[in-house]
Design a protein around this nucleic acid. Structure first.
Length: 803
DNA sequence: AGCACGCCGACT
DNA sequence: GTCGGCGTGCTC
């Protein structure tokens, strides 16, 4: 007897373990570890993942697997083991780890349906009429109609049954193909056999015969011969033609042409940088490289040529980019060099498109994957390199379970395959640069821009000074002057603003009342489209009050500056300027992002105005001015990384200017010009920033000097939330070494979300081998024993967001 | 997470 | 008497 260990699709602490099932004899040899199966679980039917096969079990009453959902494993042995590692390091459920590795289309959908029993005596007509043609009635529909009781009775009396269905959404797309069922010699005779008025049918047969190919798309044949499906149907019935369904991939880049590119000659500094990488590929040796190169120093060419070498070895490559729809130029470069060998995985694709790209990888039809964070799980089996571009980006950390970091995951996989990892950045994260300094990573440096272009000249403008001179506009005099100058010269400008919407919040000028969310401790954000205020955390929204709810004054004012407001302002000040605005609101539609960029690239706009998303990857020759409207918005958020993020962002945005022949200029507007992150971003001095920031981190006992773990407790009742956090803090404190620093319990920076109070405890530590075990115990204790449904305890190991 | 089972309050 | 509330415990 063969027994399969199965992880079931129930994300809960109590079910986060292997359940044993008998493998039915007919499927012995077929069912393998890494396959999805349908299993009975209590009264239901659910999806599960086979993790192992064995020949006996300690469980007395075993049930059998109902059916396999795959013909081949969807997770190979390496990925199964990687999931174990993910589970242990991020403290997530195993099922969550598996699901993170697979495209969303493979997540099971469940349906509960009442079915009429054919064999039994007919049920009441009125009730029976509610069932559909197939004799089915959805459980949910029945519940809505208040029929559950009568249906329960029907089930009891065997006139109906309740059926649990497991559906996979991994639909393949196929197209209908038709072809001649006859040989050429036979054709003549058969044509004669057709009645004289069957003109259309003859046309089709002639067309098929003339084409010479065994199968043609039915759609195409109908179009070309001007016939309809009924013609094909009669031919099929007569057996003159055959039809086949052929799987096709949904190709999001189908109609795009990619110009083939050849490897470019490398500069001396590029050659020096690439040599150790090629060495590591050659020796089949794992090593992590930190490729530190200023913007425009030619990192991408190094990626491309490293991949080239990997492909020559018959191996595969993964390239991670922050959020790929944001950098269509990047996709173009990879598709241009490696053509059809490239699959692309990013959030802009539909579920079906992602699934198809994933299958291309699984079926080994591609060798290179370019994608966002989750592409790190691409099911390659002969991985030769992993490249993480813009290594410092925080989007590489997933903020929901499993809370993994793509960088650590990539390194883990690369260790398994003994292949290199390249982390590329112009502004490496402090963690990575510190590791490079310690020799954990191999540091490679590209200090100069290609062709030795100058870095842009940066001017830092003190906005307080502007105010003192009576300038209350959002543009400093310097920026405005340069902006008009560019308009005259016909050169392009990028304006960067780190905030979306119109104004960030609404305040009464008389009493200082700020509109806040009634369910969360955060102010509401004003959206001009709808003229409403929205909460970005729980989705609450309400119209803008015309009078202050506190003091009844009508001096309601919008504070903060959003992209919409800047656009309006530009329209007033420079009515002739053509502005393209890019933010979440204008790019949410599919393909909108590329369209807007295209518009700008073709010179149909003078000014590109946008948020974060324009900071990366833009490379247009005509941009000679970059304006940062308010550099400090990020600086004041309560996060130990805020200075680092500010520096990185400013450096990145500045890098957009003057990448080609024309010299670039940057204007940074700020209310805190003396801050080191702004000063050093202005000088583009990463090395100095690294030194200063490392000092701050050392003083604050923050990474990279300490590791962090964050426990967040939430409950409807403040007292319970704080009380439980207090207990947890004590429990942890008692079990860690003296070296560990424990902060808490304190209220979270956002003390309430969705009417739940939030408390947290932050653990700073250097080496605590027992920590994960302790945290696991805490989670187990508070999910099981308390039984308080409202209590939530979440653990984030190496958190990036402290909220 | 679901779902059944089971044990108490208010009703046709 | 029964319907239905949700506390408790299990799912191979």
């Amino acid at each position: 007897m063969q027994v399969a260990s199965v992880i079931v699709d129930v994300a809960a602490m109590q079910t986060d373990k292997e359940f044993d099932y008998i493998v039915p004899e007919k499927w012995e040899g077929l069912i393998q570890p890494g396959m999805r199966v349908v299993v009975p679980f209590g009264p239901r039917k659910i999806q599960g993942f086979v993790t192992a096969l064995k020949n006996k079990s300690n469980v007395k009453r075993l049930k059998s697997i109902i059916e396999p959902m795959d013909l081949l494993p969807v997770l190979n042995q390496e990925l199964l083991e990687l999931a174990d590692w993910l589970t242990e390091t991020t403290l997530c459920f195993k099922i969550s780890a598996y699901q993170a590795m697979l495209p969303a289309a493979m997540k099971a959908k469940y349906e509960k349906v009442f079915q009429i029993r054919e064999t039994a005596e007919p049920m009441d007509d009125k009730l029976a009429s509610l069932f559909n043609r197939n004799g089915e009635l959805a459980w949910e529909a029945a519940a809505k109609a208040g029929l559950l009781n009568s249906l329960r009775q029907e089930v009891k009396e065997n006139r109906a049954e309740l059926v649990y269905k497991v559906k996979s959404r991994d639909r393949k797309k196929s197209i209908r193909m038709i072809g001649l069922a006859l040989s050429d010699e036979d054709l003549g005779g058969h044509l004669d056999a057709l009645p004289a008025n069957a003109r259309k049918q003859k046309d089709v047969l002639h067309y098929l015969a003339a084409s010479g190919s065994p199968l043609l798309s039915a759609k195409e044949v109908m179009e070309q011969t001007d016939t309809s499906n009924s013609t094909l149907k009669s031919l099929l019935e007569k057996g003159f033609i055959v039809e086949r369904y052929q799987e096709v991939y949904r190709d999001p880049y189908e109609n795009r042409q990619f110009k083939k590119t050849e490897p470019l000659p490398l500069t001396n500094q590029q050659q020096e940088a690439i040599a150790p990488i090629l060495g590591s590929i050659e020796d089949v040796r794992h090593e992590t490289f930190l490729l530190y190169g200023v913007t425009g120093s030619g990192k991408t060419e190094i990626y491309l040529q490293s991949i080239q070498r990997v492909l020559e070895k018959g191996k595969e490559a993964i390239v991670l980019v922050p959020e790929i729809s944001l950098t269509p130029q990047m996709v173009h470069r990879f598709k241009g060099r490696f053509g059809d060998d490239v699959a692309v995985l990013h959030s802009g694709l539909s579920t079906g498109e992602k699934y198809d790209e994933w299958r291309k990888i699984q079926r080994k039809e591609v060798k290179v994957v370019v994608g966002a964070r989750s592409a790190v799980f691409a099911p390659f089996e002969n991985l030769g390199i992993v490249i993480i571009d813009e290594e410092h980006e925080t989007s590489y950390k997933q903020e929901e379970n499993p809370r993994y970091h793509a960088r650590e995951t990539a390194i883990k996989r690369a260790e398994f395959y003994q292949c290199p990892v390249i982390l590329g950045s112009a502004t490496p994260s402090l963690e990575s640069f510190a590791r490079a300094q310690k020799g954990v990573y191999h540091l490679l440096t590209l200090p100069n821009r290609m062709n030795n272009q100058q870095l842009p000249e940066v001017e830092i403008v003190d906005m307080r000074e502007e105010l003192r001179h009576g300038n209350r506009s959002m543009f400093s005099r310097a920026l405005f002057e340069k902006l008009t100058d560019r308009l005259e010269k016909g050169e392009q400008t990028v304006l960067f603003l780190n905030r979306r919407g119109h104004s960030s919040f609404i305040m009464c000028r008389d009493c200082g009342y700020v509109a806040g969310c009634p369910h969360c401790d955060i102010s509401l954000t004003y959206h001009r489209h709808s003229h409403r205020m929205k909460c970005h955390y729980c989705g609450f929204e309400e119209p803008v009050p015309s009078r202050c709810p506190e003091c009844n004054s009508d001096h309601i004012r919008y504070f903060g500056t959003g992209t919409q407001k800047v656009e309006d302002e530009l329209g007033k000040l420079l009515p002739h300027a053509r502005v393209v605005r890019m933010d979440v609101d204008t790019t949410s539609r599919k393909g909108a992002h590329e369209k807007l960029l295209q518009q700008f690239a073709e010179g149909k706009a003078d000014i590109l105005l946008g948020t974060q998303m324009i900071a990366k990857g833009l490379d247009f020759p005509n941009i000679t001015l970059v304006g940062v409207l308010s550099a400090d918005t990020m600086l004041h958020i309560p996060d130990f990384r805020s200075a680092e993020k500010t520096f990185q962002l400013l450096t990145q945005v500045s890098g957009r200017a003057g990448r080609h022949q024309l010299q670039g200029e940057v204007v940074i507007q700020t209310y805190t010009p003396e801050h080191y992150s702004i000063q050093l971003a202005g000088k583009q001095d990463y090395d100095q920033f690294y030194k200063e920031e490392m000092m701050m981190r050392k003083l604050g006992n923050y990474p990279p000097f300490y590791y962090l773990a964050l426990v967040t407790v939430s409950h409807e009742d403040v007292m319970i939330a704080s009380g439980v956090t207090e207990k947890i803090t004590q429990y942890i404190q008692a079990r860690l070494s003296d070296e560990a620093i424990i902060l808490g319990p304190v209220a979270s920076p956002i003390a309430r979300i969705n009417d739940r109070y939030r408390y947290q405890c932050l653990i700073k530590y250097k080496r605590e081998p027992k920590l994960n075990e302790i945290l696991k115990t805490v989670m187990e204790h508070y999910t099981k024993q308390q039984g308080d449904k409202s209590l939530q305890v979440a653990v984030d190991v190496n958190p990036f967001i402290m909220m």
